[in-house]
Design a protein around this nucleic acid. Structure first.
Lengths: 172, 172
DNA sequence: AAGATGGGACAGCCATGTTGACGTATCTTG
DNA sequence: CAAGATACGTCAACATGGCTGTCCCATCTT
């Protein structure tokens, strides 16, 4: 009775940095959930007006980010099956937003890139993201922004970091 | 020709805090996407082993967070229809993880709470989240963590902030 | 007593993920 | 050069978790 059980966090509030207070973790989980969903919500509205869904946006986004991306690379970025991606890419090319060319060294590859109108649409979607995220950045201040980045980077497994860094043109 | 168009960002790199450099915004978008999905990925695995999906976790999570939550309050938190939530709640109570009581002031309400085994399961799921997020917190440092929180708070629309703050027992 | 509200249920649709099986073109290698 | 690996595509079937629309009951409010 006098001695709290060893699993009682109140007993050792700063015991280990890997065993933080529950409330701090719950706060992060909730902010991540609400922040993420609210940022994407505005984009979703724009998408449905054009008959697309979130999956189409993801493909558009990453193709815009890395023109001439081979299908396989996009599959790895999205971590979905080629069947799922296939549907999405078919929709996008049927509507003239995406086009493909054969790879030059390896002609089995199909390199994905956005058409003129694909670029325009992606830019429009991105503007929505920019508006939301810029406001949050500005309200929080530059120092908070780097903290924001640092924590999120820590959530990405080591073996996936190179892929993310490469997207951002930051070596590996 | 000599004067860049007003939409050219290179012309006014620090023009307005609401119009940040594209790369900074894209970096945030990507880290948010990968960070969020990677954090939830480990939980997903645990869930499918028990025959549940992400939707079940969300319900479990918020019921754990606010015992005796009325159905209507949970609907607002999740922003889904009552039909969608109904399915999830039926699954959870069929498996004995959630139970309901009639409200005391208003007996039309059903107050949701977790059973013993519901609490145990939610705790197990939460451990997975804690492990991932604690590691990221620890690697980034306390100052980064507050920045992380601040930016995410800025992504939540004003009219929804009270709901989120209330979850975290931080007044409104 | 009438209407509003909290909750539940049935039916059907859609988007987007999954497996599994196969086919074809091209590259790589013994 | 033949054999196998790889990149990509497609057909088919299924699961999850959103959605709309409709109707119902119990209870609270007026």
């Amino acid at each position: 009775m006098a001695v709290p059980s060893s699993s009682n966090e109140l007993f050792t509030p700063a015991a280990s940095p890997l065993f933080l207070r529950e409330d701090e973790v719950r706060r992060g989980v909730e902010l991540l959930y609400f922040g993420y969903t609210r940022l994407t919500r505005s984009v979703d509205e724009l998408l449905v007006e054009h008959g697309f869904g979130r999956a189409h946006h993801r493909a558009l986004y990453f193709i815009a980010r890395q023109p001439d991306l081979p299908v396989n690379a996009l599959l790895k970025i999205l971590s979905i099956t080629k069947q799922s991606l296939g549907r999405v890419l078919n929709d996008l090319s049927a509507k003239g937003l995406v086009e493909t060319r054969a790879g030059e060294q390896d002609r089995r590859q199909k390199l994905l890139r956005l058409t003129e109108s694909g670029l325009a649409f992606e830019a429009q979607l991105f503007e929505t993201l920019r508006t939301g995220l810029s406001a949050a950045y500005a309200a929080a201040g530059q120092e908070s922004v780097t903290g924001f980045w640092r924590v999120l980077e820590g959530l990405i497994p080591e073996d996936e970091k190179p892929m993310v860094m490469k997207l951002q043109g930051r070596g590996r």
